[in-house]
Amino acid sequence: MRQAFASVRMKLDPLVCACRMARQTAHLMVGLQDYDAYAAHVRTTHPDIEPMDRATFYRQATDRRYGGGPGSAFRCC
């Protein structure tokens, strides 16, 4: 049973992967990074620091994108 399950998941994997990538692309188009990737990154590289929560992360990302600092949105013509 478990094996059948695993094989179904294997088949679905590319689909799940494509969906995740589409979602990530859409987010990055408006300048938002992936929160889960960020949290995972902080946990592995800085185990002593607690990552920001989701709301703070998106708030900061929005402010940074239009705030004129590094990485601010420079809309094109």
Binding site: Y38, A39, H41, T45, P51, A61, R64, G71
Partner: peptide, 8 residues
């Protein structure tokens, strides 16, 4: 410089 925020 990967920081999960600006450099990813």
């Amino acid at each position: 410089l990967n920081d999960g925020l600006d450099y990813v």
